[in-house]
Design a binder for these strands. Structure first.
Length: 646
RNA sequence: GCCUGCGUAGCUCAGUAGGUAGAGCACUUCGUUGGUAACGAAGAGGUCACCGGUUCAAUCCCGGUCGUAGGCUCCA
């Protein structure tokens, strides 16, 4: 028998007989985590039971590592599938991958799962876990695999095999009475999965195509320790508590009304305050950035959208035409065509570029009813929109300035984690989803990529997510508790300016077509505020808070003083009100806390006598007594600085 | 749009094995004038989402519509 040398990451190189498995190394080697659930052989995730036949590097991974956890999740999906097959033998299995911290498995079942079913499945999973069945993998030829899955009637698996590349090595994993086609790798036995929870069940289409069979999808999660599982479940609970739909109702920020229509939010006075603050911020930044503000109508003739390409590429997201005196009119889904019109309204010279137009335009998009979601997915939306017309030479600088503006906003809102995603076109969809001009696509995409690289911005790429007129940068941000949102967008339009015959006279006297950058750093107000609600959990920084200060008289006797203070604060531009109800001070404080008012000002006999205020900050019991003048100065500073409390 | 669940007072939710409904909070009035997370009492408030069917009788059963929730994207 020959020997091979194996470099164990973190432990050094040792000699082992050829054919040794990582599992055997694990049982003999000292210093490897007992929590190991999977390994990488030469950086490739590999089952622990695989025989090693040549020199290699082995890295052992536990469930705390990203890869280790993903394997655990994937294996738990299989465990669930086994439980489902035991309980409901007629079920057909399809696929069961892992996601971030979660997994799912799609089943074909005759009757959808209920909550009780999920509990039963979970119980069965525990049983199988306790049986501690070995998970064994073997390679099969295409014919063997096909006949095996045909025998057990798993026709979805047969479809999968038929679609696989011939070169693909087919693997099946067996754990007792359950065998699944799977690329793996997996953990060693069902007993390694003990801390899991099924989260929800819902419908999903086979292969995500709505023309296909509806399947039942069950989501779950799994961890290597009870503690981690609990932590994750608590995080989910915290996310629920921060749901913008819940807080939006509690703080009376917005609502939907059946008679108005789904996806058409109504902003209450409290919510409108937040919009006003965002607008004020954006206008300030845009003024500094050389933007000019414009206003355009909500309704426009179809001919404009024929020209822009919207009717060809975007019609399914537009409200149907309305007939006005025999002419088709549409609600505008985007502001760009109108801005193009404004650009074209007067001749432009290279001296006019970059020409930047911004607008708080309300757009209307027909989102499918099932996709509407609180403020995150709506049918009427106000965009923080602008279009920058520039020469090719100016493009990079303008593009980077826009990206930098995003960062400025992130800082203001205390957004610490974000990611840029460069969304590219899919050549397969040219002429359908995308304007058919492969050369320009390539060039623009390369330019954008270069601009991002030059600016030193980190980004990922995603094929098939571009806008119909050009590539885009989508910005993902993470809220304070780690929930991901897709907010801002930044797009390059190489085609539409040409269609609108937009030109500028260049230095050489020739007419040229400008490039157009679409940018919406705050996205839509709806989605952005939805994000802010969850990011801050409703505890807005002072400058955004709908109710900044509430004055609480200790008894009716001090109402007059309270109103005097209130008027003074309002005159300085502070949003203040007085709680003059005939309630005890404790009750007024409680209500103010629950309404998340930032600052409570308590006034009673002492304060009236000394002409002072007693300040109590939201969540902070400790208080200070100061003069009205000092208080005003202090909070105006905080407001004007747009300070975010730590 | 599709699948499944849900829709009772402004909010959160009970309830009715089919006989037109209840609590807490909020609201109004009265009493209380109270110093840091709920003062007491009384009152008002509902076409039980909407439309239709079954029934002597429907908030409850059946069908449809609307709204809403989870998902339908990360591909063995």
């Amino acid at each position: 028998m020959t020997n091979i040398s194996i470099n164990i990451v973190g432990l050094g190189t040792e000699t082992y007989p050829s054919g040794t498995t990582p599992l055997q190394i694990l049982s003999s080697a000292k210093g490897v985590s007992k929590e190991t659930i999977i390994c990488k052989v030469d950086k490739v995730l590999t089952d622990l039971s695989v025989q090693l036949n040549s020199d290699c590097t082995v890295q052992f991974l536990d469930g705390k590592s990203k890869d280790g956890h993903n394997v655990l999740l994937h294996s738990t999906a299989h465990l669930m599938a086994q439980a489902v097959k035991r309980l409901y033998p007629k079920t057909k299995v399809t696929i069961g991958p892992f996601l971030e911290n979660r997994f799912y498995y799609d089943f074909y079942v005759e009757t959808p799962f209920t909550e009780e079913d999920l509990l039963k499945i979970e119980e069965e999973m525990l049983k199988i876990s306790n049986e501690n069945i070995d998970i064994i993998h073997e390679e099969k030829t295409r014919e063997e695999a096909l006949s095996f899955f045909k025998n057990i009637g798993e026709h979805y698996k047969i479809e999968i095999i038929n679609d696989l590349d011939d070169s693909e090595i087919l693997k099946v994993y067996s754990q007792g009475d359950f065998t699944d086609l799977c690329r793996g790798p997996h953990v060693q036995s069902t007993g390694m999965m003990q801390h899991f929870k099924l989260l929800s069940s819902s419908a999903a289409y086979w292969r995500g195509d709505e023309n296909n069979q509806t399947l039942q999808r069950v989501y779950g999660t799994s961890f290597t320790s009870a503690k981690d599982l609990k932590k994750y479940l608590l995080m989910l609970e915290e996310q629920k508590k921060r749901d913008h739909r819940k807080i939006g109702k509690e703080l009376d920020l917005y609502f939907h009304d059946e008679e108005v229509g789904p996806g058409l939010p109504l902003w209450t006075p409290n919510g409108a305050v937040i919009i006003d603050q965002l607008e004020a911020l954006a206008k300030e930044k845009e003024d500094l950035g050389g933007y000019k503000r414009v206003r355009t109508p909500h309704l426009t003739k179809g001919t404009l959208y024929e020209k822009s390409g919207h009717l060809d590429h975007y019609m399914s997201s537009m409200y149907p035409a309305m007939d006005v005196d025999g002419t088709d009119y549409y609600m505008k889904p985007m502001n760009c065509p109108h801005h193009h019109k404004i650009y074209a309204n007067s001749p432009k010279s290279y001296r006019d570029l970059p020409y930047r137009l911004s607008e708080y335009g309300t757009c209307y998009r027909y989102e499918k009813s099932g996709e509407l979601f609180g403020l995150m997915r709506v049918r009427s939306m106000q965009m923080n929109d602008a279009h920058i017309y520039c020469t090719e030479d100016q493009f990079k600088e303008e593009f980077i300035a826009v990206c930098n503006l995003y960062m400025e906003y992130f800082k203001i809102f205390g957004i610490e984690k974000y990611e840029m995603r460069l969304s590219l076109h899919d050549p397969k969809d040219l002429g359908k989803k995308y304007i058919n001009n492969p050369k320009l696509w390539k060039k623009t995409e390369d330019d954008v990529r270069d601009a991002l690289k030059d600016a030193g911005l980190k980004f990922t790429e995603s094929v098939g997510d571009a806008a119909f007129y050009g590539p885009k940068i989508d910005v993902q941000v993470w809220s304070a508790i780690g929930k991901e949102f897709s907010l801002a967008t930044n797009q390059v339009d190489f085609a539409v300016p040409e269609r609108f015959k937009l030109t500028y006279k260049d230095l050489d006297g020739k007419s040229k077509t400008p490039l157009c950058i679409h940018r919406a750093p705050l996205g839509t107000h709806e989605r952005f505020i939805g994000f802010l609600i969850e990011h801050f959990g409703g505890n807005f920084p002072l400058w955004i808070a709908p109710r900044q200060v509430t004055i609480l008289p200790v008894s009716d006797k001090y109402n007059d003083y309270a109103h005097t203070v209130c008027e003074s604060l309002k005159t300085s531009g502070v949003r203040a009100d007085v709680d003059s109800r005939s309630e005890k001070i404790g009750s007024k404080i409680r209500d103010a806390e629950m309404q998340k008012v930032n600052i409570m000002v308590i006034v009673g006999e002492k304060e009236v006598e000394n002409s002072t205020l007693t300040i109590r900050r939201r969540f902070i019991k400790q208080q200070q007594t100061i003069s009205l003048k000092d208080f005003s100065a202090e909070i105006l500073d905080e407001i004007n600085d747009r300070r975010v409390p730590n």
